[in-house]
Design a protein around this nucleic acid. Sequence first.
DNA 1: TCCTCTATTGAGATTGAGTCTCAAAGAAGT
DNA 2: ACTTCTTTGAGACTCAATCTCAATAGAGGA
Lengths: 144, 144
Amino acid sequence: MHNTDKLKRILHKENLRYTQQRQEVWDEICASDEHQDAEGIYNSLRKRQVNVSRATVYRTIDVLVKNNLVRRLNLDDGRSRFENKTGIEHHDHIVCLDCRKIIEFMDGTIEKMQTRIAKEQGFEIVRHVHQLFGRCLDEKCPNK
Amino acid sequence: MHNTDKLKRILHKENLRYTQQRQEVWDEICASDEHQDAEGIYNSLRKRQVNVSRATVYRTIDVLVKNNLVRRLNLDDGRSRFENKTGIEHHDHIVCLDCRKIIEFMDGTIEKMQTRIAKEQGFEIVRHVHQLFGRCLDEKCPNK
DNA sequence: TCCTCTATTGAGATTGAGTCTCAAAGAAGT
DNA sequence: ACTTCTTTGAGACTCAATCTCAATAGAGGA
Ligand SMILES: [Zn+2]
Ligand SMILES: [Zn+2]
Ligand SMILES: [Zn+2]
Ligand SMILES: [Zn+2]
């Protein structure tokens, strides 16, 4: 399904109107794989002459997150980051504390284990956060 | 080692003075196992007639966290929560989305696996976040 | 196409957790 | 007690995110 169709489908489901601004915000999130924050999305749009207000960026992201088109990440740096969640398998993140490089990982065994652990404790998991913070061995990283 | 000694030791190491306010904040964190936030700690102190300002609560927590007496938790609800980290083995958290009940868990296999995964990706882990959000089966939980 | 009814938008105000400022208070060594 | 230097408290400030409300613009019907 094309990205525009995904957007139209959830807007229809939520009884919301299809607008140019909502399309632009969704386009920007689809076009980038850099886990941008709201301000970054806003700036990217302004840079290519798209007129969208901050308020609309935030409001649109909320709709996209609520309908599983976008995933909100909290990487402990005081703002939310976002990534396209469609057509992409689940993954978690490794973050370099020095250069903020982000690597994605996924381990089926861990995924199953955490579900079992939660069940043993009487919980039905809805979502989870698994983030590994450390230092990367990249030559360009300033931790050398 | 007594809690007061732990505090005095890190204050000495940091060339900071031992004060009544710092002792009170540390006492409050040691006395509670409820993952309180800064405002909660501040209110608990005020309730028992202890004069401490919000600024001092925040400043003291920062010292305690930096020196590993206290752990800062970010449970995606917009504020940090804190727990005594001394004399307690590492654990991660399961959180009920409805009643906010928090359960602690620890799985040595997962701990080892995440270290290995990070190493394979060229990272040396410093800390990690592993949180499971879901719904508990507690009778008192409003999700029924 | 035009009209009407609502939803949406943008600019700026507001919120709230957390940080900063600086004068007054206090710890610690002499 | 005296001196020196740190800490404290009250309130100003920051910054991401949310809210307000008048102006704008979808969407469906005539
Ligand atoms: Zn996962
Ligand atoms: Zn990702
Ligand atoms: Zn762990
Ligand atoms: Zn805990």
